[in-house]
Design a protein around this nucleic acid. Structure first.
Lengths: 197, 197
DNA sequence: CGGTATAAGTAAACAGTGTTGACTTGTCAA
DNA sequence: TTGACAAGTCAACACTGTTTACTTATACCG
């Protein structure tokens, strides 16, 4: 667990050239790897720096603070899967399948990181923006009628909640059910979330 | 914000009698007040001790660790409101009203603390137990048919998610909607969660 | 080519955290 | 009155994120 640096991209040649962008990327890559595998608040700045083979102070130089590093890691991640694109009629079903896959499987590394450190007030703005851009806004764009954003936010809540419950270890009941039955139920729940009337 | 101790129950008489239980309660009361108003990880052990007019080391003596203190605070809190008791037919509506009240209002102090520090792996077991005992189990007891626990867990996810989204600042869209419309929609969503077929 | 401005990188310190072990001191029973 | 044992204290430990002043390498320009 605490093997020395082991830096992934640390070229053996001790004398590295000074390359701002390369260093930035190195830090970012290490942060991604560590945040997603162990969670934001259980990975220290110094560990990220060591893993990247870089001085601690550079994290703050390049990213302002540790929080900024997470923000960038999140921003780098691809947008929410393209479940929103496609036929409106089957949208709830597609989202439900996505959730089931996530609930039963591992989820993307980033989602793990998100739930790991959800609730940290420092990160509130980071997550808020991400939630809006990656889920609520694109989903609302798919919906017609009034209060599309409210309906989309409801779906986002469900996604987040299921993820959180799973992460908190309360997923036993959820995973116990037959996957297909769970998907079917989720589809109806999501339909209720986005229904127009 | 950082007035000195101000200890609520700190009797002026300097020489306090040594009373294990009283000291424990004092710590617990301070922890409750601070955790619920500022969140678990933003209140330090030393601050709790100072607020209680007590030595820091006593926290660990009496509660093992800071985490144990939170566990006790949570356990002390009354069970989830009695929304689960009553007519099965109106259960979804009652839950929905409860959520709306919470979403628009402040929520109980404890709920604030819960979301504040949700996701902290240290606290996983604490929250998991609480989730099971306070929401999933009692709700499942109200439901008939198969996989009652899975259906209850789904409702719990929704509750948690809505709370989390609100706490993350993404509640704008949710609160924008007419409260009554939101409650009605939530009722239908929860009905879909707990539906038997 | 040599010198220098500027940026990249470094080291050490700061104030804070949770936690621990050895210590003192009050209280109550013999 | 005197022990014993619990309650309470203190100072230290190993960490955390962050900042400051510093050194050093690079690239440009005369």
């Amino acid at each position: 667990m605490d093997l020395p640096p082991a830096a992934d991209a640390a070229d053996p040649c001790a004398g590295r050239v000074r390359d701002r962008e390369a260093t930035r990327r190195r830090i970012l890559a290490s942060a991604y790897e560590l945040f997603t595998s162990e969670g934001y608040e259980h990975v220290s700045s110094r560990r990220i720096a060591a893993h990247a083979g870089v001085n601690v102070a550079l994290i703050n130089r390049y990213f302002g603070a540790k929080r900024g590093l997470l923000a960038e890691v999140i921003a780098e991640d691809a947008a929410f899967p393209a479940v929103f694109e496609g036929d409106r009629a089957t949208l709830p079903r597609r989202i439900a399948e996505h959730v089931t896959r996530r609930t039963l499987g591992e989820g993307t590394p980033l989602q793990r990181a998100l739930v790991h450190s959800m609730g940290d007030p420092d990160l509130q703005s980071v997550y808020q923006e991400r939630l809006q851009n990656a889920i609520i806004d694109p989903l609302a764009a798919c919906l017609e009628g009034e209060s599309a954003h409210a309906r989309a936010a409801l779906v986002a809540s469900l996604l987040l909640g299921v993820n959180a419950v799973r992460r908190m270890g309360g997923a036993g009941p959820l995973t116990a059910e037959d996957p297909e039955a769970l998907t079917a139920r989720l589809t109806r729940v999501i339909e209720a979330c986005v229904a127009e009337h």
